[in-house]
């Protein structure tokens, strides 16, 4: 359902962040994109989320080349994704519930339906009792869970996450992991960029390893379940 063919991404300053990257990801797969800092993980995430366009090559999602999508079609594409950003992009002047309501308002849901879904999403990440909480009172792990709630509130079939456990302690990271696993189990496709080794040790059926913009043979990095 996601096919990358000969993807290149060169930033205006001339840095080649991705070089000839090709891969295929099937529906319902859980895939990790790993690599050192600066390897191009975030760049790939941004291409998948149509925040950046590839310099060349094609990136097909459900048969649509999202690199060539018109600007007016991009918002509708994003609604089908759940995006979890490295810097979370939460709104700190709104409470937890309002943050989760935002994508639903954008999608044009009725107030009742939006509230129902937002609360269900908060429940999934264990934050239902914090819906009125100011974001400043949430811990790092709670903020990350809130970001996940916002990402999944529109019931996306694809969940993209960029460094979702970086800066989290072991317990919080384990919680996030558990939440992702639950989504994987109900058939959501998960693509997670991380350089956090804890992930790879815990569960990793498939890894795409980037090294200075190039995809390495992923077989050598395959870690079978213990």
């Amino acid at each position: 359902m996601i096919t990358a063919r000969a993807l290149f991404k060169r930033y205006p300053q001339g840095i080649e962040a991705l070089k000839d990257v090709s891969f295929e990801i099937g529906a319902g797969e859980m895939v990790f994109i790993t690599g050192h800092s600066g390897a191009g993980k975030t760049t790939l995430f941004r291409l998948l989320a149509a925040i950046e366009r590839p310099t060349s090559g094609s990136l097909l999602i459900n048969g649509k080349n999202i690199g060539a999508l018109s600007a007016s079609a991009i918002p509708y594409l994003r609604r089908k994704f759940g995006l979890i950003f490295q810097d979370q992009k939460l709104l700190f002047d709104r409470n937890a519930l309002d943050n989760v309501l935002l994508p639903l308002k954008i999608a044009g849901l009725s107030v009742q339906e939006a509230l129902r879904r937002a609360r269900a999403a908060l429940d999934k990440v264990g934050l239902l009792d914090r819906e009125k909480a100011s974001l400043l009172t949430l811990s790092g792990g709670e903020q990350q869970r809130l970001a996940i709630a916002r990402a999944v509130v529109n019931r996306p079939t694809i969940l993209l996450a960029d460094e979702p456990t970086t800066n989290l302690d072991q317990d919080s990271a384990a919680e996030i992991l558990g939440i992702f696993r639950a989504f994987h189990q109900v058939g959501v496709t998960l693509i997670i960029a991380t350089h956090d080794p804890r992930w790879i040790a815990r569960l990793s059926p498939r890894i795409l390893r980037l090294d200075r913009g190039s995809l390495q043979d992923s077989a050598e990095c395959f870690n079978p379940r213990p």
Binding site: S72, Y76, A107
Partner: peptide, 16 residues
């Protein structure tokens, strides 16, 4: 600015 950026990232159209 940050609200606008976030809204765009979660699928807001320009019209919205």
């Amino acid at each position: 600015a940050s609200e606008i950026e976030v809204a765009r990232l979660v699928g807001a159209t320009n019209a919205f």
